[in-house]
Each structure stands twice: as structure tokens, then as C-alpha cells.
Nucleic acid binder design. Structure first.
Length: 803
RNA sequence: GCCCGGGUGGCGGAAUGCAGACGCGAGGGGCUUAAACCCCCUUGAGCCGUUACGGCUCGUGUGGGUUCAAAUCCCACCCCGGGCACCA
């Protein structure tokens, strides 16, 4: 008989909630643990990715609670965003009502998983008492010069008359109507994250409990490179342009220059040139291609402008090209082409028959194309013989002396565009006054409430612009008529500080009280999908640093330890609604129960890796829990002897499970629990005494409590305990019982296993050798041959090398 | 094209000096009037032996290398997945 999971799970969910077992209160006498899963977008239903995330998080909440930590594990909603707005456009449903209904549904489902949160701290970013502080945050950045407005292009669908997110642009066309997307310039708000580029980069070194993979991605995203900027004159006239290079030491190898197609100088360069027509066609073609298309195309194409540039070091004339492998958005939008030392330049030079000069001596027998490694500088006048670093320093000095350039640092990171021409977001608290200009809304007038609008259909401007009464306001500075900003904020702004709000979620006076933030921050464990490895995590780090500079955040880094989980696949593809390969968690709650599902998620593979879904696996973990249920509830008549070996196994299991949880590797924590259960079943069939049984069951139930909490709590109660298992201490193991008196030593001859023998755990090398050579089978392999070497690793292994 | 991961039985995976733990699936058997549930046995490939559930060889994408010893470390290549803003 399998246990009645429906009834038991409902019973314990009700008790945990009504007894507020996981409510967190500030208590300086206990060590704190702030455990946070990335707050979800309320999409309407839990999917397996959520289940995986909250199973890991809840395991940790429960484990750390049993280890005596004061655990804060809050839950909230990233409830502004595009899907609710799209639903409003398509079916007219009100975004607020729709979102709130979805939150109700998902809350119920999270509770069905048995995942415990301090629901008293629940927050949702679409609530005015939350986004009021988004607006406050915006004003702080504005005051510090970290928020500014400038023109920037957006994706514009001319047919739908609306701005599109990158996600809504598919192959250069509007995903809804297929119209080719255009670029359109709009004045938009930015956060000056580039001011923090160096600190965001340097502080990655402190984050030694983050995955290296994520740190590498952030490092590459910020993309600091040291090099030089200098001016290159165009031959025959007074035009010039600036280039940036990381390899100024290779300047003598410059055999051409390239400008980006949208470089402002291009028009005047090609005007009247013999190649003008061809160049214009090329530029027009590259403007219509999306960046992705340009990337996908392997070949580097370009067109000669008909003009020449002068190399500042030797006045050599080199041709100037326009090519779309150079981007206006990075550096100066112009480069010096050095094919000898750069593979992309090599490819370009090879295609257009341009000269190639090596300025770095490659190693002997070098057969590659561009050589990007170290070596002595050659063919380079006064730089000859210098190594890369020395040559760089020397040429930068020279450029600076001549006043045509300077050593500089270039970042790949761009400022954060936070304006969205959308309804369902936090309104930007600014007012545009015809006489005073851009005026911030005074803090005491926050929140700027999101107005109700009737029609969400796009009409060429932000839906907020249609709320006439809301838009027309008075200027806080001069009292004259003025207009409100109608853009809303990127939802990444909401999520860049919510972890701070969780420390003091209901405060109406300030965003969060210092004392609370000091107690709880930083987040000790942050858990979420790797898709947030760059943007969300970088923005949260940036805002935390800004708040720290303001003296408000007690930490400069928000997340001490980061865990990124793998995604769930089925049939070789990511499980997703659009692919139609989802397995609904609700059905599994009903058929097998939350505990079986949780256990399967923990068991199915390493938490960091993608995992292939197999519903049969839930069957397996469910069978395991059934076996445990039966042995605990159905065993009677304890006439047998004590079983110290079984008790020792329980202690060893406790050690292994604890170590695996600490390492965040859950899939290997479960087999020992299965083995211990099987051993207990065998032992009860043979007959054991009550004390052995009780001891082993206590270990099992407690070790399983964070993984399969419902059945564990029920068994704890049924074995005569009146306490709440969640608050019981984590089991301690006895080191003496864990230590094994004897171990199996492997005996190898020439690296092949030829025998095994039980030996004392503290055996000496000499004794190990004697025992091993005493084995009949081993003798067969070594006799008649000379033992040339003995590699002894007592007590686990010994290897005889014979020949 | 560039960057980051990863290739182990029929499948998910375990193993950092014993390859295949644990689970799934498959095959066989038991229980049952029957089925489900449950329980037991077998399950990388090939071979030898069967008095011995004993032994031998091969085997972790491919080819090399280092080592007493390589799934694990190094080099080259192939394939799969993910990311991308051709970042000078």
C-alpha cells in the first residue's frame, strides 16, 4: 500500500502555515541565513523549472533551519512586464486584474509543493507601495547624475505603430505581423552603469563563491581593454578620424583602415569618389541587415572609399574601406587594419588583395595566418626588438608627445537604457516643463501612480500618453502647466534591489530600514536560472553599489553565494510551452505527491546541469518513499538483537548527506538514503531490537526532512514525537562510528586489478605489500618476473610493476 | 565567425588511483483465479571455463601524449548544447 500523499501533504502544509514555522524575525543572538530564489514573473502556472528552483531553495531553507540558523526565505513577484501587456492588447484583459489572479494561482501551487516562505514579507513590484521606491531610486540616481536622457534607437514596427523589444523581433521582422522592423530615434532615459564598470569588474574577484562561468561571462560583458586612441589624417584634404586599438605596438603593420558603415565621416569621404555609387549601395545594404545576419555571414565584406589615410608613424598611404565588421557602437567606429597580427583583418586583407606586413616575429616554423602571440617587434622602425609590452608603452609615449593620441581604456559595457514605451511598468517620476525643462517629481509626491487606461492597443506612443488627465500636470518648480514622462521603467530596475526591500518589506517611510538591511544582507545564497547570469545580476550589483555609495546598503555586493541551475529538457529541447513539451507539475502533485516530485528533481542529475525529464523517474522516487513508509509504519515485534553495523551505516549516511548538501550536489545525497532504507528493511525482516530501529528511523526521517518534508514530518509524528520536525536539530554523526575498522584494498599488477583484500584501515605500507603478495592470484601474476617498483597507497591500493 | 559548457551501458547518471553506484527501462521468476501493487534474480561487449555466479581481453566521442596508473591531466580533431554586441 502506498501512503496517502494527498492527505498527508495537505495536513502538513496547513500546519506549517498556521504555525508560521518559517516566519523570520531579526534576532542578533542567532547566526542569520538569507536564502533567496529569484522572484518569479507571475505567468499563471508553475512549470518544472520553478519546481526545480524552489525545491533546491526549500531544501536549503529547511536544512539551515535545522542547523540552527535564523533563516530568511521570502517570496515575491516580478509582476510588471510584457506578457500582461500583450494579453491586454490581445484580449483586453486588465493587466492588474490578470496579474493578480495569476499570483493567487501560483501562490497556491507553490504552497502545494510544500516550499516554505515567510509570506508575511511577500511583495509584488506592481504594487504602488513597491514601485514608489523604484521611483525614489530613480530620483536618487538622477540627483547624482547617474540618470540622464539622450536619443537612442528603438526597434519600430511601422505597421503596428509600436516599439518592439528585441525578443519581439524575429529575423529582422515584427513577430506579430511580419513587417520589417525599422530603427527609430527616441529620447530615452539611461542609467550610467559605465561609471561603475571598473568596480563591477574588480569586485568580481571577491565573489569566489560564484560559479566561474558566470564571473567569466560578466568579465567579458564589461570587456575592459587597454590600448590607445589616436587620430589618422586622410590624404589630400583636412579630414581625419580617430581609431581605437588594443595593439598600438603593431602600428607599422597597418595596411588599410576601416570605418563602420554608419560612421559620420563616411558620407564626406565617398562624396565625389570613383567608388561613390558602389559604396552607397553597400552602406544601404548593411543598414537593412540585422546584427545577427551580419554575424551569421562568415565572410568579411567591405567596399573601398576611393580615399587614402596616412599612417602617422611613416606617412605611408593606406586605403580606407567601409566594412560592417566594424561597429559604430564600440570604440570609435574606426580601426587600423593590421592583417599580420589580427585574424579578422587578415581575412579582410586576403579577400581584397591588401598587403600584409608582419610586425611581430612568429615562432620558428609558424604556419598560421595572423600571429597574435608574443614575440619581438620587427619591421617597425624605432619599435624594433621590443616585446609587446615595451613596444606598447613606447608607441603610446610617442603618440602622446606628438599630440595625436593617448593611452586609454575602453569598455564594451554600455549605459543601461531603462525607458520602455510601455504601460505595465513603473512610471518614471519626471515632469517636462516648457520653461524649467526636466523636473523631478518631489519625493513627497511619490508614488506617481500608474493611471488606468481603457485601450492598450499601440498607437505610436506609450499607452500612458493617452491618459490625458494624468499626463497634464503642473510643474513642481514653477507651477506652470507641464507634461509627465510617459515612459515606464525596465522591469530590471524593479529586480535590481528587491532583495533589500525583503529585509523590511512594509516600511512606508523609507525603502528599507538600515538596521534590518544590516542584519540580513548580504544574501547568503541566491538561486536561479543561468539565463540571468549577465543582465539581472550585473544590474543588481550596480544598484547595490550605488546604494552603498549613498550610505544605504550595508554591502557593496548583494549576493555572497550564487547558484545557477540547469534547465529541464524533454526530447532534446528545453521544456517550454511554445515547444509543447511541458509536463504539468500539478498532475504529478495529484498522482505521486509533491515529495516524490521534489525528490526526483533532486535525484535526476547534478543541479547545475541541464536534465532530461523522465516521468518514470518520479515513479522511482515515489516507490522509494513507499518502501520507507511501509518499513516505518508496518514493522512490529522487536524481538531481534541490536544491529550496531546498521547504526554505523546510519551515521555514515548522515555524514555523506550533509557533505553533499553543503557542496550543493543533491543527486549524490539520495542513493545513500535509498541504501540505508533497503538495509533497514532487510534488518527488520531478519529481526532487530526496538532501539536500533528507532535510531535508524530518526536518522532517515531527519535527513529526508529538507528533501521530502511532508512524509518526513508525518513519520516523525507517527514514531511518537510531539515536536515539529522542521525545528529539530540536524543529526550529528559519531566520528568513531563513521570510521571504518577495515577497508578493501585493491591490488594491481601493472595497473590492472588482480585482487582485493580486506585490511585494517591503518595498515602500514610494508604490511600492505606483504598481505598483497600473499594472495594466491597475485602470486600467479608476479611469479617468475622481477618486481621493479611497488606503488603503495595504503589502505586503498597497491600496484606492483613487474617486467 | 567568436566565447562558454559537455560527450561514460538501452536511458538519467555514479566514479578524480577499483568504470558503470543509485534510479529508470528491459528480460526471467515468485505472489495472484487474473491483473495491478509488491518481492527475488539477470542486465557494457566479446571470450574461456564451468568442480567452482571463477577467470581473461576489450571498453568512457576520435587520434596522439604524460604516468606505475587516465573517464579524470596535456595536445589535435570530430560531434552536441548554450550564449553573442564580428569588440579592434
Amino acid at each position: 500500500m502506498s501512503y496517502d500523499h494527498q492527505k498527508i501533504e495537505a495536513k502538513w502544509q496547513e500546519r506549517w502555515e498556521s504555525e508560521k514555522v518559517f516566519r523570520a524575525t531579526e534576532d542578533p543572538s542567532r547566526p542569520k541565513f538569507y536564502n533567496l530564489c529569484m522572484y518569479p514573473y507571475p505567468s499563471g502556472a508553475l512549470h518544472q523549472g520553478h519546481i526545480r528552483n524552489y525545491t533546491f531553495g526549500d531544501l536549503l531553507t529547511r536544512y539551515k533551519t535545522m542547523r540552527g540558523f535564523n533563516v530568511l526565505s521570502p517570496m515575491g513577484w516580478d509582476s510588471f512586464g510584457l506578457p500582461a501587456e500583450n494579453a491586454a492588447i490581445e484580449s483586453g484583459v486588465n493587466p492588474r486584474e490578470n496579474t493578480e489572479a495569476q499570483i493567487v494561482t501560483m501562490t497556491r501551487q507553490i504552497k502545494q509543493l510544500g516550499a516554505m516562505y515567510d509570506w508575511d514579507r511577500e511583495l509584488a513590484s506592481h504594487h504602488p507601495d513597491y514601485y514608489r521606491w523604484d521611483q525614489w531610486l530613480f530620483l536618487q540616481l538622477f540627483e547624482r547624475g547617474l540618470a540622464y536622457k539622450k536619443e537612442a534607437p528603438v526597434n519600430w514596427c511601422p505597421k503596428d505603430q509600436t516599439v518592439l523589444a528585441n525578443e519581439q523581433v524575429v529575423d529582422g521582422a515584427c513577430e506579430r505581423c511580419g513587417t520589417i522592423v525599422e530603427k527609430k530615434n527616441l529620447a530615452q532615459w539611461f542609467f550610467r552603469i559605465t561609471d561603475y564598470a571598473d568596480r563591477l569588474l574588480d569586485d568580481l574577484d571577491q565573489l569566489d563563491e560564484w560559479p566561474d562561468r558566470v564571473r567569466t561571462m560578466q568579465r567579458n560583458w564589461i570587456g575592459r581593454s587597454e590600448g590607445a586612441r589616436f587620430t589618422i589624417a586622410v590624404a589630400g584634404g583636412d579630414l581625419s578620424f580617430e581609431v581605437f586599438t588594443t595593439r598600438p605596438d603593431t602600428i607599422y603593420g597597418m595596411t588599410f583602415c576601416v570605418l563602420a558603415p554608419d560612421h559620420p565621416l563616411v558620407g564626406s569621404l565617398i562624396e565625389g569618389s570613383e567608388n561613390e555609387q558602389e559604396a552607397r549601395e553597400y552602406i544601404a545594404a548593411s543598414a537593412s541587415a540585422t546584427e545577427i545576419e551580419r554575424m551569421a555571414e562568415g565572410d568579411k565584406t567591405g567596399v573601398f572609399t576611393g580615399r587614402y589615410a596616412l599612417n602617422p608613424v611613416n606617412d605611408q598611404q593606406v586605403p580606407i574601406y567601409v566594412a560592417d565588421y566594424v561597429l559604430m557602437g564600440y570604440g570609435t567606429g574606426a580601426i587600423m587594419g593590421v592583417p599580420g597580427q589580427d585574424q579578422r583583418d587578415w581575412d579582410f586583407a586576403a579577400r581584397y588583395g591588401l598587403e600584409i606586413i608582419r610586425t611581430v616575429e612568429p615562432p620558428p616554423r609558424w604556419e598560421g595566418e595572423a600571429y597574435t602571440g608574443e614575440g619581438p617587434t620587427i619591421n617597425s622602425g624605432f619599435l624594433d626588438g621590443l616585446e609587446q609590452m615595451g613596444a606598447k608603452e613606447r608607441i603610446i609615449e610617442w603618440l602622446e608627445e606628438k599630440g595625436i593620441g593617448l593611452g586609454t581604456v575602453q569598455y564594451r559595457l554600455r549605459d543601461w537604457l531603462i525607458s520602455r514605451q510601455r504601460y505595465w511598468g513603473s512610471p518614471i517620476p519626471m515632469i517636462d516643463c516648457p520653461s524649467c525643462g526636466l523636473v523631478p517629481v518631489p519625493e513627497d509626491q511619490l508614488p506617481v501612480l500608474l493611471p488606468d487606461v481603457k485601450d492598450f492597443a499601440p498607437k505610436g506612443q506609450s499607452p500612458l500618453a493617452t491618459a490625458d488627465e494624468w499626463v497634464h500636470t503642473t510643474c513642481p518648480a514653477c507651477g506652470g502647466g507641464a507634461r509627465r514622462e510617459t515612459d515606464t521603467m525596465d522591469t530590471f530596475v524593479d529586480s535590481s534591489w528587491y532583495f533589500l526591500r525583503f529585509t523590511d518589506p512594509h516600511n512606508e517611510r523609507v525603502a528599507f530600514e538600515q538596521e534590518n538591511a544590516r542584519y540580513w544582507m548580504a544574501v547568503d545564497q541566491y538561486i536561479g536560472g543561468v539565463e540571468h547570469a549577465i543582465l539581472h545580476l550585473l544590474y543588481a550589483r550596480f544598484i547595490t553599489k550605488v546604494l552603498s555609495d549613498m550610505g544605504l546598503s550595508p554591502v557593496t555586493e548583494p549576493f555572497s553565494r550564487l547558484f545557477t541551475q540547469g534547465m529541464i529538457t524533454l526530447g532534446g529541447a528545453k521544456m517550454s510551452k511554445s515547444k509543447g513539451n511541458v509536463v504539468d507539475p500539478l498532475e504529478l502533485f495529484a498522482s505521486h505527491g509533491a515529495d516524490s516530485l521534489r525528490l526526483y528533481h533532486l535525484f535526476m542529475g547534478p543541479p547545475t546541469d541541464d536534465a532530461a525529464w523522465d516521468t518514470n523517474g518520479v515513479e522511482g522516487t515515489s516507490r522509494f518513499l513507499d518502501r520507507l513508509w511501509r518499513v516505518v509504519t508496518e514493522t512490529d515485534g522487536f524481538e531481534g538483537p541490536a544491529d550496531p553495523e546498521l547504526v554505523a551505516l546510519a551515521h555514515r549516511t548522515a555524514k555523506k548527506v550533509t557533505e553533499d548538501i553543503e557542496r550543493f550536489v543533491f543527486n549524490t545525497a539520495i542513493p545513500p538514503l535509498m541504501t540505508l532504507t533497503s538495509s533497514l528493511i532487510e534488518a527488520t525482516q531478519a529481526g532487530i531490537d526496538r532501539q536500533t530501529f528507532d535510531q535508524v528511523v530518526e536518522f532517515l526521517v531527519k535527513l529526508l526532512a529538507p528533501m521530502a518534508p511532508h512524509i518526513s514530518h508525518e513519520l516523525w509524528e507517527r514514531t511518537g514525537h510531539g515536536t515539529m520536525l522542521a525545528n529539530e536539530p540536524w543529526p550529528e554523526w559519531d566520528p568513531e562510528l563513521v570510521a571504518q575498522a577495515t577497508v578493501t584494498m585493491v591490488v594491481q599488477v601493472n595497473g590492472k586489478v588482480r585482487g582485493r583484500v580486506e585490511v585494517p584501515a591503518d595498515i602500514s605500507a610494508e604490511d600492505a605489500e606483504r598481505v598483497a603478495l600473499g594472495l594466491e592470484k597475485v602470486q600467479g601474476w608476479v611469479e617468475g618476473a622481477e618486481i621493479r617498483k611497488v606503488v603503495s597507497r595504503p589502505p586503498n591500493l597497491i600496484n606492483f610493476v613487474v617486467g
